[in-house]
Design a protein around this nucleic acid. Structure first.
Lengths: 244, 244
DNA sequence: CGAAAAATTCTTGCATACAAGAATTCAGAC
DNA sequence: GTCTGAATTCTTGTATGCAAGAATTTTTCG
């Protein structure tokens, strides 16, 4: 049976290598590949402008080109990559102009979320958001940046979810990818932590009161403040690296 | 040369069939496949709930499974399809609740676009948008529905472009897909044509005056009116098909 | 005849093969 | 030594192969 090549034309030889890894279900590769790649981009591990060689990614992620290519297409659609015909895709530059453009859109979207959420806020929902707020404060006191990021994002996300508008949530998630990327790129803004916490408390109060107009306005301003600070930090960083 | 099979192992046989069609450039299949499929879905040629068999689509579109699969992934991300693991993707239902959710988001987004556009409106830009408005009126007088749709969409898009905010345009295009789908699904709303034209004139006036607050408010209301009418029409349709 | 189970067929998910275009290297002329 | 261009290599775009899971049909038992 294990006689030479002519009985096992090639397919059999290859079939031995892949090691199907018993724990892997069938439809899981696309999703996990997207998640891994996205994480590399958002955190900055893959720097803006970096070229993505499909073969390398295959080796690194341990999958074939098909899921890698699908992931690239997905992330291109999300605006994290730029596709050039017949050339390697590259990680999208995060230019400051685009982040400034984000300010208007994200603040408006979250303002709308706050308006709708305030109208639907139950005691339970507000308590849940309050919990997220305190979790964020806890990470703040411990100077835990990643935990702070995560809790902050969860706070905002929960408000958008509370709006009850699935389209709004969809759009918010798309925008949040870019915001996260900008945050990671300039992680030198702990100055704003204190103010952010105060603003969150104001937002919570407006939600508790069910005051839609106030919640909307405070969320709009909170987002605008945060992103503006981010833009300033990025510009500062750019200026320093220019002079260096 | 045309002797039997053993000299042409299989690859050569297959190589004769595809007929590379000289006019086709390399990177064009993904894009055109997406466009064709999207059109089938948006116009309703592929009804909500319809299952997409990849093989059939390959035959119908004359391409292999690779671009078809990529197109399906793309449209799933756009929310036009729903993916089920290990099963055929299906055309997303356009449920009325989701269109109602669209109202808040699209009106807010276009309101923001109007606000930004008014601040940047030059005479030239306003003239261009005015031209689109008159083109729409022309199609109206001729009862040309597709032309009316197209001009209407161009009018709105141009305002969003005029806002100068690329993120806003990106989001608007995503939302416009769903709006278009809803429009096609209930093409029984010519009642609103007259009012829509009047509202467009009001919007144009606000842009001309450079009045950001007014342009924003009028766009918000215009979009809200249009989509609300659409929802009413769809509910009407649903009620009738229930009683039938 | 009906229902349950087994086997077949079909369909998707992933991997790979092949071709066209881009990038790079190397040779040759000046 | 450098510039040009041809040849090679590399990379992406597309097509196809193969296996696992779903659907369907057939078969068998009550």
């Amino acid at each position: 049976m294990d006689s030479p090549a002519d009985t096992t034309p090639l397919a059999a030889l290859l079939a031995q290598l892949p090691q199907p890894q018993p724990g892997r279900r069938k439809g899981a590769l696309h999703g996990s590949t997207v998640a891994q790649l996205r994480n590399l981009i958002v955190t900055g591990a893959l720097a803006p402008g970096a070229k993505l060689n499909e073969r390398e990614l295959c080796l690194q992620l341990g999958v074939s080109r098909t899921p890698v290519r699908e992931a690239i297409k997905t992330l291109t659609q999300d605006g994290l990559l730029r596709a050039l015909p017949n050339k390697s895709s590259v990680v999208a530059e995060l230019d400051v102009g685009e982040i400034e453009a984000l300010i208007d859109v994200v603040s408006t979207i979250e303002g709308l979320a706050g308006e709708l959420a305030a109208a639907r806020a139950t005691d339970e929902a507000v308590a849940e958001i309050g919990m997220l707020h305190y979790r964020m404060m806890l990470h703040h006191t411990r100077d835990e940046l990643p935990g702070y990021f995560e809790a902050n994002k969860a706070f905002h996300r929960r408000i958008v979810e509370l709006s009850g508008n699935p389209v709004l949530l969809w759009i918010w998630e798309l925008l949040a990818l870019r915001v996260d990327r900008a945050r990671y790129s300039s992680n030198l803004w702990p100055k704003r932590w204190k103010m952010a916490i105060q603003e969150h408390e104001q937002i919570l109060a407006a939600l508790t009161a069910g005051d839609a107009a106030l919640a909307s306005q405070r969320l709009r301003e909170h987002v605008r403040n945060g992103l503006s600070g981010l833009v300033a930090a990025l510009k500062d960083k750019a200026a320093k690296s220019d002079s260096a």
